[in-house]
Design a protein around this nucleic acid. Structure first.
Lengths: 195, 195
DNA sequence: AGAGCGAGAGAACGACCGTTCTCCGCAGCG
DNA sequence: CGCTGCGGAGAACGGTCGTTCTCTCGCTCT
């Protein structure tokens, strides 16, 4: 028999793949069994309910996302380039064949209204991404209000790229981010505060 | 017996309310019957399948959205204000008690991968919004690339406001939009094109 | 008034869901 | 070699779904 850790990982990655491709409710536990090769009995020993499995999948995806962002950002030089690297990371992702939007947004739309635990797991990921961007903005010497603006661009790019099937959305988001960063850091085009 | 047009409208608005609040798959046709007061037999005479009803709901919501945008934009003066009015419209919406994000994005995440007709209806709405914004940008004398950037902000604000439950996201989006518009129209902070 | 048609209420149907249970084979141990 | 206990396969269970069917009632037309 396989290791508990291995079984857990197989179930989570299989469920992740299926949930992301077809939506959560469209995937039965039996399909998870088939994809993972782990018996139903074992799955229920590892995850007491489907909801628990969904939460585990979301946490797993949060880890992968964070690692991907860290990796993408780490390859860039200046703080400003590090911020823009986030959008290059999105561009690569959007071009993947099985790209179907942000899994967290998808799950939230499907089940966020019905399950607080799932809504919480989604919220956690979005907050951690917000903190990450805020840290990059601070490192670049940008004002606090810049971070949520860049986050909105990234989120919008994800949903719009999924729906329109146009990976160039990452480019539009990157261009907008570049403008916002430039205006915030170089102090041009700011609203006049005295009129 | 009630008019066919009336019955249609009652079913669509009832289904819209339920689908938006709970997600599409979590709402049975029997719940639509209860909420609309129209018998199941009649519902199936008007809409041959649930999928068809979903498409009708999406189209209905597209019409309402377009009317809302037209209304919000119409109250503004200069072309630049008309663009920003879109974000004020979002701000009002985000503050509504039953706000649960963009219904189109939610439905797309839930069923977009499984039904081309539904994905198409969602795509249609997003494209019509994109055209609307592009028209406003042109009227304001802005460059073509500005419109998709503003659209990304609006989309990102909708999902982020829903997940974080923070209606201020509209304000962040508006501020970012203001900066982007200013940079595009007043030609400040643009990337140097000759270097 | 009586026949006939249309529509509503809700039961019925087949499929599938999440979850649990049963049965069987197989490993380890005396 | 026989017993025991664990794990896998998949049947079973109760519930719900989308969809259809039946039954009954009330209206209309002669």
């Amino acid at each position: 028999m396989i290791d508990e850790q291995t079984a857990r990982e197989r179930v989570v990655t299989a469920a992740d793949r299926l949930f992301y491709a077809r939506g959560v409710q469209a995937v039965g536990m039996d399909a998870v069994r088939g994809e993972s090769g782990v018996s139903l009995k074992r799955i229920y020993a590892l995850f007491p309910s489907k909801e628990e499995l969904i939460v585990a999948v979301l946490r797993h995806r949060t880890d992968r996302w964070n690692a991907g962002i860290t990796d993408a950002v780490g390859g860039a030089g200046t703080p400003r380039e590090r911020l823009l690297a986030v959008f290059d990371f999105l561009a690569d992702w959007f071009r993947e064949d099985d790209f179907r939007g942000c899994a967290f947004i998808n799950v939230f739309g499907e089940l966020g209204g019905g399950s607080d635990r799932i809504a919480g797991a989604v919220r956690e990921q979005k907050e951690s991404f917000g903190r990450e961007v805020a840290g990059l903005v601070r490192a670049a010497g940008g004002p606090d209000h810049l971070a949520p603006q860049l986050v909105l661009l990234a989120e919008g790019a994800q949903t719009t790229a999924a729906i329109s099937r146009d990976p160039d959305m990452a480019g539009h988001a990157r261009a907008a981010a570049d403008t916002l960063i430039r205006c915030a850091l170089d102090d041009v085009g700011e609203p006049a505060t005295t009129a």
